[in-house]
Simulated assay, not measured.
Amino acid sequence: MKNQMDWQLNIYLLILAFISCLFIYSSNTNFGQYSGSFIVKQIIFFCIGFAIMYIIASLDFEQLRKISWYFYALIVLLLIVLIFAPDSIAAPINKAKSWYQIKFIGTFQPSEFLKFAFLLVVAQIIEKHNTKAFKQTYITDLWLLVKICIVVIPPMLIVYKQPDTGMIMLYMAMLIPMIYFSGIKKQLLVIITLIPTIIISALVIIYFKFNSFYTEQILGNLSPHQVSRINGWLHPFEYSDSAFQTKQGLLAIGSGLFGGKGYLENNVYVPEKHTDFIFSTIAEEMGFIGGSIVIVLFFLLIYRMVFHALHAKKQYTFLLASGIIGLFTFQVFQNIGMTIGLLPVTGVTLPFLSYGGSSLLSNMMLIGLIHVIKKSYSGYLFQNTNEVEVQFDAKYSR
């Protein structure tokens, strides 16, 4: 087992864990925003996370296939129960009902673990579809998309209603690469790509040319929380309350200059500095150098995932890797982008750095899958790699 794990990947995770604990502690020292420190819990979460990662890495894909639908059903059930759960066990946090409150442990967010469930079941759907559909047509490709939508859209609607738009964006960042590499016809991919492009372009035109329609018909159909975040992003000086977190994050990052103020020397108040805006603490105390080191670490982490994806011998393993890569790449870009005002605030955490048990544990589960992918092509499963590779190339080259 030791030789089957990517220890270079684990080293990057350990460095990120060390940085996370350092700056979570630092984020809660100067302002007294919270009554207790989160550092002990975060250390416990990392210990549990590495244990779960190791357990998943010890499995093979046949075992993962067997549990995938059961795990998916469990998470969907927890999401449904969350809708009707009383506030005593599922109190809203920041106007979102997304967590179960577990005594002596903390909160549990089912939507975080839906990432893992989606990844397994969608990859399995695509693999089985391609195995059965020997003659590929537009009808078979559309049927594949319908099957994926039947599985992912209902739970995504539940998460959207919590509301948690940021999590929906993460799901899409994971699912889009999987669909792209599913082997469906390129012409259909072009159409799928054009639809969101046209929608985004239309929204931009409406915003600049028909602002009253944008305000009444588009913003009017969103929740007050979503409207507040959009206005705070587009008009930070007109909506100072909505943009307060973004402006404070920018101030913290900018005040760090090139070399930073030094560890524990953060003096700019930023709400939720230990969670979504952990990057602002790092950049304030360690400056441009510290922020750049963190970005390089994420680059190296994702590079190792890409390395294993390119060595995958089966379409199933390649799909899993592409989904995980898409998820983490978008999550890092979105989180850092919102802390510097480039993107709207969505509540997306910075993976492996932000405080949060559910987010951290679900991400460690995904890293466990990367280890399984590495194990699969290095001969641990004793498959006929030449035969499998030919089959995968035949499907992918459609």
Rank of each mutant, 00 (worst) to 15 (best):
Q42V: 04
P224Q: 07
M286T: 13
L16H: 07
R65W: 10
L361I: 05
Q109E: 06
F50L: 05
K66V: 03
I195E: 04
G368W: 15
L14C: 09
I75T: 05
G106P: 04
V270E: 03
Y263A: 07
N221Q: 06
M338E: 00
F382V: 14
F277E: 00
V81N: 03
Q4P: 04
L119N: 04
A51L: 15
I192Y: 07
F18L: 08
G262A: 12
A243Y: 01
I89T: 10
V268P: 00
S255H: 06
L361V: 09
S223C: 04
G326K: 00
S255W: 03
R398W: 05
Y12I: 15
E272Q: 09
I253N: 00
V121Q: 10
Y355H: 13
K66S: 04
G356V: 04
A133T: 14
P154L: 03
L145K: 02
A252P: 01
N267P: 11
G379F: 05
E62T: 14
W233Y: 09
Y316D: 02
M172F: 10
Q391C: 11
A123G: 09
S322G: 03
F213P: 03
F213K: 07
E285H: 02
F61S: 01
F181G: 02
Y396I: 12
Y214P: 06
N384W: 12
G347A: 04
F392E: 11
L59K: 07
S37K: 10
S358Y: 00
L175V: 01
K313E: 11
Y70A: 11
K95Q: 15
F181L: 08
N130G: 08
G347C: 04
M5G: 06
L77R: 10
Y100N: 10
I93A: 14
I293A: 12
I324R: 05
F382A: 13
Q33S: 15
K103Q: 10
S37R: 06
G220Y: 02
K395M: 15
I293R: 11
S255T: 03
L320Y: 06
Y263P: 08
G232W: 00
T29C: 13
W143H: 14
P177Y: 05
M53Q: 15
E389K: 06
I192R: 00
Q383F: 12
